[in-house]
Design a protein around this nucleic acid. Structure first.
Lengths: 345, 345
DNA sequence: ACTCGCTACCCAATCGTTTGGGTAGTGAGG
DNA sequence: CCTCACTACCCAAACGATTGGGTAGCGAGT
């Protein structure tokens, strides 16, 4: 047991070395004035801290949480980390958790309710202090379960009425796109709406449709196509839209950049030049959007901040505060894929 | 403390309920014939297991690891999870770890050595059983440190001589691209080589160059441009290559799909049509490659499996086995971005 | 009747911290 | 001189699980 790293030296070792009792060392290293009942002599305290630093003492978190019943661990569940959107949100979480001295587990549920449940149980059996749920389904029965079991949690990315969440203002985002396409003269539009159980797609679609109708436009139900959020989903959805040559829209709003990219691929194979024959707008403004051969218009959503905010909310819950859902503001970024003035010029 | 979830009921509770001693219950629930010294009467065992299942007993991992000195936790460090390549590898890790009853922490180092060090210390202070390092730099001094401290770890994604790793056969991958471009008639090629500290970029470049030279081609040093791995990096690199109109290559090999996508953007803004005026080949065959408006040729690397293999290697190390590095096979996928027969037709 | 060897358990120490509750020793106040 | 209030510590009991080492009881063998 001559390990050099953290973990080799214990409180007892320190105490023995210093001729003190472990509890004394513990109190000193805690430092916080709150527990420091009678603390210790300043000289001693300094001696303790010096030695602790010298030998690289770091308390055993397992022992600590066994005693305190707090693990300083957060669980994060996302549909899939290979979805860039969730990956970026997770980076925000990672950062904020780090700042607050928490560590995180993250797991993929692949949007499968039974996997969701299983992963949740794994996290709870690891005794996480709280959960950040990034894959909530609109029929939120798992969530009721969690509430009943008094598990602290918040939602991220997708919102469900009645639960605290950190999201983008998706309704507004959808409305921004509707306004933009309307202004560009589009009257015949289709929507690639994502999965019907995800609030993101539903809200963006809803925001788009209501604004478009408010402007005087019409959108038949048949113009709304539900799909997966990835490139493949977007491709097949766009394909089914474009196949109907009688009623081809002049613009497509995809509620997700990857679906939009898939739609570009489909447009291509239908012989349509995106940005001239067909406008396409995505959502999230992932780092690829601006770099594509035909730059993709997209609604920028502050994904990184959403992750950070989710952590802040959860820490609030853990602290017993009454927390409110937070919607961050989206910003429309117009690029070649939907800028017809450019196509004309 | 009427919590319903896991964590509410302890071994002692079970024992009391059953009129047994906690240690007896522990041995029964362990089940493994190895520790079951004299086990228990089959009837009793069944009673115990039934009650445990009924009340949803799950052992406290903190208490367990305090005693056993094993956390069943793995630490994973990657440059950034928002790099799709690493995200997919992590999905493989997540899966394999789950299968083996391990949980994982994953953290982003942003390829910054000081952050690498810090994150590593955090993981070690969490007492992970081992580390999977996805961001190794070729000057692997951190690794020597870890070895000296006897921390069990393996590399993933990037290889360093002398350490066990799970990677793609990057040299072969590069060679495949060289052969392909040569066969297509390209004699003037440039390489977007990635970061010089990453074995992935270095090996792919090296594999490409040696094969190309072996075929009789020449590649001046100036044709190799180092860059970041993301779209922006690819864009600027390609830009600098294409700016020199005297010696414009007819093909570019980017060691990463995102860099390739950035290069496509750059080609575009130079008025070049990718696939006709300029061939571009990427690496990794991420899910986007095939879906781009101009489908991107790319070398498929089994990212998901690399993650799985990394876990398998690490578990081997933890088990005291002597493990060997594993290189998984890449496969070239030719698409429109480098298929000149298509452009001609 | 006595020992042997089972079976089916129980005991108690231990992992590293935290924390409520002491207690010597000291200086001041009465 | 006695009490009181500090200061600067020490003690020991947790937290929940694991594990080496018992031991009571019983049937069998001689």
């Amino acid at each position: 047991m001559t390990g050099i790293g953290p973990g080799s030296v214990t409180l007892k070792d320190l105490a023995a070395e210093l001729g003190l009792h472990p509890s004394t060392v513990s109190r000193i290293l805690h430092g916080k004035a709150d527990t420091a009942r009678g603390a210790a002599a300043p000289v001693t305290a300094q001696r303790v801290r010096d030695l602790a630093k010298k030998v690289g003492y770091s308390p055993d978190p397992q022992a600590t949480s066994l005693r305190t019943r707090r693990t300083h661990l957060l669980g994060v569940i996302v549909p899939r980390l290979s979805d860039l959107v969730l990956a970026v949100m997770y980076e925000g979480i990672d950062e904020a958790a780090d700042d607050a001295n928490y560590s995180t587990f993250v797991m993929n549920s692949r949007d499968d309710t039974s996997i969701q449940r299983r992963k949740m149980e794994i996290m709870l059996s690891r005794r996480v202090d709280g959960l950040i749920i990034g894959d909530a389904h609109l029929d939120g029965n798992i969530l009721d379960d969690l509430t009943e079991r008094k598990v602290p949690f918040v939602l991220m990315n997708r919102a469900i009425a009645g639960f605290a969440s950190a999201t983008c203002d998706d309704i507004l985002g959808g409305a921004l796109v509707a306004q933009h396409l309307w202004d560009q003269g589009h009257r015949d539009v289709s929507i690639i709406a994502g999965e019907p159980y995800a609030s993101t797609g539903v809200d963006r679609t809803h925001g788009f449709v209501s604004r478009f109708r408010a402007l005087g436009g019409t959108i038949p139900e048949s113009a709304i196509v539900w799909s997966r959020f990835d490139t493949l989903g977007g491709h097949t959805a766009a394909d089914s839209i474009l196949r109907d040559t009688d009623r081809r829209p002049s613009a497509i709003f995809a509620v997700n950049d990857f679906a939009a990219i898939g739609a570009m691929g489909a447009a291509n194979s239908h012989g349509l030049h995106v940005g001239r024959d067909l406008a396409i707008v995505g959502f999230n403004d992932t780092s690829l959007a601006a770099q594509l051969p035909i730059a993709l218009s997209s609604v920028h959503s502050p994904m990184h901040d959403i992750g950070r905010v989710a952590v802040k909310l959860l820490l609030g819950v853990l602290n017993g505060d009454a927390v409110e859902s937070i919607k961050l503001l989206p910003v429309l970024c117009v690029r070649d894929s939907s800028d017809f003035t450019w196509a004309a010029g």
